[in-house]
Simulated assay, not measured.
Amino acid sequence: MGHLLSMLSLLSVLLFTNCSDTGTPPVNKTYRFNGVMNVDEWRRTFVLQLPSGYYENDTARFPLVIGLHGTGGSASQFERSYNFSQKAESGQFIVAYPDGVPSDGLFGVRTWNAGKCCDYAMHHNVDDVKFISELISRVSADYKVDPKRVYVAGMSNGAMLAYRLACEIPQQIAAIATVSGTMQVQPPCQPSRPVPILHVHSAKDTKVPYLGGIGIGGYYFPPVDSVLQVWSSLDTCGGSRVLQDDGTYRLTEWYSCANGVIMRCYLTQDGGHAWPGGHKSASWADTPSTVINANDLIWDFFRQFTLP
């Protein structure tokens, strides 16, 4: 009987005591977080997704990609419509999906203040540059982020903010990717260093026309070619060349830029104002291009670059 009691006592210890050699409690392996932070007078929200390998190596540091939705979108919409968390998992990077400030109208449409666009965020002079800067700092402090590998990818109005971030806080961002957007900064862009840029657009986009002009919301959007010409000068590129033009899409690259920077532009002949390779974000939304996959192109581009 005494022997039996001893065995039961031992089993109890094994069941209710951590058996690691270090005596530390097991790690709570949570991979998804909903965050809130106050910036100026605004309550800002975001979603953070960690890759499966995050907890496997205590010394590992992971790239961070900030995904910026378009007008009327949201953090969850960006993730869902563009399958971006799947790409974060396969690429083993951390992804943060911030929300734009919602309007005070019936639908609470979320926008970003990209300078001369758009809507509520612009009219209320929301400091989205400050928000994203503080978001990068917070996530980098709280999680295992490699601060030299922080990137921004944006859709439409989010792409416009990505351009503004490249102009104003390039010291925090290694590269940007812009989809179906253009640059709307005011005053002129004066980055403190050259920035790698990947631009993706459809020739059939009428909401933010590639050739420029009046688009969605009655805003005037500068031609993308002009924007890229400005950036080729800012990045002091040596020239440009067409790498592919097969009738489905044209790929242009700017080369011999300062500090090893590269600029690329994919212009598709299918799709519309949408994320290539993604889903339609709504029944009334444009159909995405199928000749390229934005997620693959973006991550392949980003991982070439680190901050100096």
Rank of each mutant, 00 (worst) to 15 (best):
P170H: 12
S156V: 11
N157S: 12
I197D: 14
R164T: 10
H123K: 15
H199L: 09
L198S: 10
S156P: 10
D142F: 06
R149M: 12
K144A: 06
G158P: 03
V126F: 01
H123Q: 15
Q172A: 13
S156R: 12
E168L: 15
V129A: 00
A141G: 11
H201A: 09
M183C: 15
L198Q: 06
L161C: 07
E168P: 12
S156A: 14
I132Q: 04
S133A: 12
A175R: 08
H123P: 03
A153C: 04
S180P: 10
G181I: 07
Y143W: 14
S180K: 00
A153F: 07
D128Q: 11
P188D: 15
T178W: 00
M160W: 10
Q172C: 06
P170A: 07
A153H: 04
Q171H: 15
N157W: 00
A141R: 13
C167M: 00
V152R: 01
I173T: 02
P196T: 08
V185H: 10
I136F: 04
G154D: 03
E134A: 13
V200A: 05
H201D: 07
D127Y: 13
L135G: 04
G181W: 11
Q171G: 14
Q171N: 15
A177D: 05
D142C: 05
A159V: 11
A177M: 07
L135W: 02
Q184F: 13
Y163G: 02
A153Y: 01
P187I: 05
S180F: 00
F131W: 01
L165Q: 05
I173S: 02
S137Y: 05
P187V: 05
A141H: 07
H201G: 03
V195T: 15
L198Y: 08
S137G: 11
T178L: 11
G154H: 04
D128V: 08
I169E: 00
Y143M: 06
M155T: 04
A175M: 12
V152C: 04
I173V: 14
Q172W: 01
I136W: 02
P187Q: 05
I173G: 02
F131G: 02
V150Q: 08
G158L: 05
E168V: 12
P196A: 11
H201K: 06
R164N: 11
G158M: 03
C189I: 10
L165P: 06
S140M: 11
Y143C: 07
I136C: 08
P147W: 04
A175P: 14
P194H: 00
C167Q: 00
D142T: 11
A174N: 00
L161W: 13
P196R: 10
V139H: 02
V195Y: 01
R138V: 13
P194N: 07
Y151T: 03
G154M: 03
A175T: 12
V150W: 03
V126N: 00
I197W: 09
V145E: 05
L161Q: 11
I132W: 01
M155H: 12
D146N: 15
V139Y: 03
V179D: 11
P194C: 11
G158Q: 02
E134W: 06
R138L: 15
M183N: 15
R164H: 11
I173M: 06
D142N: 09
C189A: 13
D128E: 13
